[in-house]
Amino acid sequence: MPYDIVVLIKQIPDLELIKVNQSTEEPITDGVPFKFENLSKNSVEAAVRIKEKNGGKITAVLFGNEKGTQVMKEAYAMGVDEGILITGYSENNPVLTAKVLAQKIKQLHYDLVILGNQSADSMSGMVAGLVATELNLPLLSNAVSIEVADKIVKVSTATEKDVIKSETTMPAVISVTQETNEPRFPPVLQIIKAGKKSISTEQSTVKIENTSKIISKKAPKSERKRLIFEDVDKGAQEVAKVLKEAMK
């Protein structure tokens, strides 16, 4: 039985390339390139595996900015059939993001909505539940494995203490984790083909009242001593002293 799947993907700034402005202590994001967020790759991989086994169509939706086309092309190369880029993303706001995505999803045909559980930049972990609420759909979250059969989806969720197995009838929202799968590296030919595929782009029109005000957004302060020893023996002596002190 074929399943139509909507995958929600994300572009994030390459976090390792973010530098700090020494005078304002603020991280500099201007000019930092965007990349395909890791859990979004796990989400696409999960969708592609279901398609390979059962058939169906995969539509990826990305709420971001114009640079998102690059990420969408990577998603195409992995096996996404159609891509929709919604521009107008400014600050991390899970409620707004969920509303924008849900409004689009409502116009599509789908059996499953798949997304990452907690993206690497904002880490809010809120979007899956908010999208499920907007769509009034059951949520199977933090999946470490996914099985589908006869319009029923089963997942295993690893919490801090237990592994919970649960199921529901489609349509449903599923959030995936890093442990769900190992995303594929698409072959070169597919990447070239993906570059030529069109992406439908539209501007977000959803507005919400933002009730929180950012007071500051600075790099975390590190007031460490940074005494670095290249003389191993001297370093070991010093460290032993520090550890003895901490043992008291």
Binding site: I12, P13, L15, I18, V20, E26, P27, T29, N92, A120, D121, S122, M123, S212, K213, I214, I215, S216, K217, K218, A219, P220
Partner: peptide
């Protein structure tokens, strides 16, 4: 925020 590169006070 930014994967731990920023502290957002709001």
């Amino acid at each position: 925020g930014l994967g731990g590169k920023a502290v957002i006070e709001e």
